[in-house]
């Protein structure tokens, strides 16, 4: 008889709290996985003299680990969503640092403006054209 819950036992609340703590725990697992691959990437980056940033190596490693089913996607999904949804905040402090670079920018503003505008248009044209060419080419091969 003593196994019965007390009269004021709130089942819904208890369930909610358990779900919440489970969510927080799985978030922690996700954070660990992400940090682990970040650290591994930094180590490899360091061992190749920083040729490629460690975080990018970590990104590739996480991708490979997910493809090889070493890491389960549901483990990293909540962390991934949180970080990507709020990405703008993370580079805000660095963005404020632009006040230290205003001198360089005002000296070379034409270079920045022309280089970025032209290059952006070039990337759009090249990527779209190459992809479309591939698709037409393949279609032609299938028709034959």
């Amino acid at each position: 008889m003593s196994d019965l819950p007390p009269k004021n036992y709130n089942f819904a609340l208890e369930l909610k709290m358990r779900l919440l703590s489970f969510f927080i725990f799985s978030m922690l697992v996700g954070i660990f996985i992400v940090f682990f691959f970040f650290a591994l990437g930094e180590f490899i980056g360091w061992s190749i003299n920083g040729f490629i940033p460690g975080s990018v190596i970590g990104m590739v490693l996480l991708f490979v680990a997910l493809c090889l089913k070493i890491v389960k996607p549901e483990h990293v999904k909540p962390v991934a969503k949180f970080l990507c949804d709020n990405m703008g905040l993370f580079f805000l402090p660095a963005g404020v640092g632009i006040v230290n670079a205003l001198e360089v920018l005002s000296q070379y503003w034409q270079a920045v403006l022309v280089a970025c505008a032209v290059s952006t248009v070039v990337v759009i044209i090249v990527v779209a054209s190459v992809q479309q060419w591939f698709e037409k080419h393949r279609k032609g091969a299938e028709d034959r």
Partner: peptide, 20 residues
Amino acid sequence: SRIISFMLGPTVVVMGYLLY
């Protein structure tokens, strides 16, 4: 604001998941 800037690294790593 170092804690906020630190999150940039993990954000890059997590893009491996988006790629997947």
